[in-house]
Design a protein around this nucleic acid. Structure first.
Lengths: 170, 170
DNA sequence: AATCCCAGTTCGATCACCGAACTCGAGGCG
DNA sequence: CGCCTCGAGTTCGGTGATCGAACTGGGATT
């Protein structure tokens, strides 16, 4: 990133914000957890200007949150996938999502432990198993009675239950 | 806020980012947890332009994260304090701080359960008691061997252990 | 060869952020 | 009282970020 790095702050929160603190960045990371991997899918699902998306993806790659590599099945296409450091953002992302759900706007999706089907609690733990599942063991499904606010490829794919990090269609 | 509200996203994370997603905002909230209450202290500790600080404080008040009220002991002075909704941001803030500590920059402060003196784990729980203390029961102290990177009033006050939310001196 | 799709880049206009200077009211001091 | 300082902002001109729309270029499809 550039200039966004709160240099004068001797604080790991400030450094984290230097990475994910810019507009759109955390929503891109959210979509990556939902399985979005392609430029056009991020663009369609987020309504973000192309130039900004391009800039953010490059920044996230440079900062080691996403990894960019060519799609082996479609020449010329690129894929962006979360690195281990990127996947470690899940607790922070989930905590913000929970805060928003409680104080702003009921979220349209639920998150449950894929192993037992129990909804996660506010700290991201499965109240039945007592475990805090990793993203790949979390299933997300739309809350019932909240239909079709969007119609892009990603929104449609997410109408049925979906494991985090599992690539979206095609 | 204005324009920053990701309207097209049917997602509580996007709504949360509409509140705390602008530059500086989460650092202001962090300082509020540290006990900062006055305009001049935020300004001195954050190196933020006055106009931006003024704008952010007004936004946080409007969004119900901070409460603004006159200081009864000093006529003309204002105080900004976290509301209940603002205090609920602690888990999200701590999760980001932990991520930054692990992946970017070792944090200069430690956080422990005030009751038993045990350092909190990565999810904000006390590993001895098994509890997740609220901010008012968390003690923060500088990590040893990390001295005086700043000399403003707030940085000096935080050189000794300090309970979250407890107002900073006078 | 013409068309389509994907993954970007380029462009001019608008908006946000910046530091520095200014304002205004409440005390303090001689 | 007149002058000074401090806290809490507002105003201002310049710079950088973000915006939507248009353009580019490579690969597959027809």
């Amino acid at each position: 990133m550039l200039g966004k790095d709160y240099e004068a702050q001797d604080c790991s929160l400030a450094r984290a914000l230097g990475v994910i603190g810019e507009r759109w960045t955390l929503l891109i990371v959210r979509d990556a957890f939902y399985g979005v991997r392609r430029f056009s899918d991020f663009h369609a699902h987020l309504d973000i200007p192309r130039a900004v998306l391009s800039d953010r993806l490059a920044g996230l790659v440079e900062d080691g949150i996403l990894q960019r590599r060519p799609d082996p099945e479609h020449a010329g296409r690129q894929m962006y996938e979360l690195t281990a450091a990127g996947r470690d953002l899940w607790p922070a992302l989930y905590a913000l999502l929970v805060w928003g759900d409680r104080h702003r706007y009921r979220n349209s999706r639920l998150f449950e432990h894929a192993v037992c089907g129990t909804a996660l609690d506010e700290s991201g733990r499965c109240p039945v198993c007592g475990l805090t599942p990793k993203p790949e063991n979390i299933l997300t499904a739309p809350r019932r009675g909240r239909g079709k606010t969007r119609d892009d490829r990603v929104a449609v794919a997410l109408r049925r239950p979906h494991r985090l990090l599992e690539p979206i269609g095609d």
